[in-house]
Amino acid sequence: MSSHDLTVAGYLAIIACGVALEVLSRRPRSRIPSFGRVLSSVMRTRAGRVGVVAGWAWLGLHLLVR
């Protein structure tokens, strides 16, 4: 396995963990909250709301903007 493959596999493994958590959150009486619930909780405050939206905005700027 090359370094490139290993690096990509690392990203995929972390994404798989996120998907697994989301699946676990759907089970009845799960102690794991869904990602949406975590976002809602974080975005209850202005700092959280603006922070999350700024992160989203930065992604667009980073990938497309001069």
């Binding site: 909250p33 909780s41 939206v53 497309l64 903007v65």
Partner: peptide, 30 residues
Amino acid sequence: VFGVAAAAVAIAWREPRTRRSPPEPVTRVG
């Protein structure tokens, strides 16, 4: 892209006029 991003951050800055009911608290393990 900058225009859309700036507008979104400005909208997020304002307090929402209506709020959803408070979400269930997130557990420590979660």
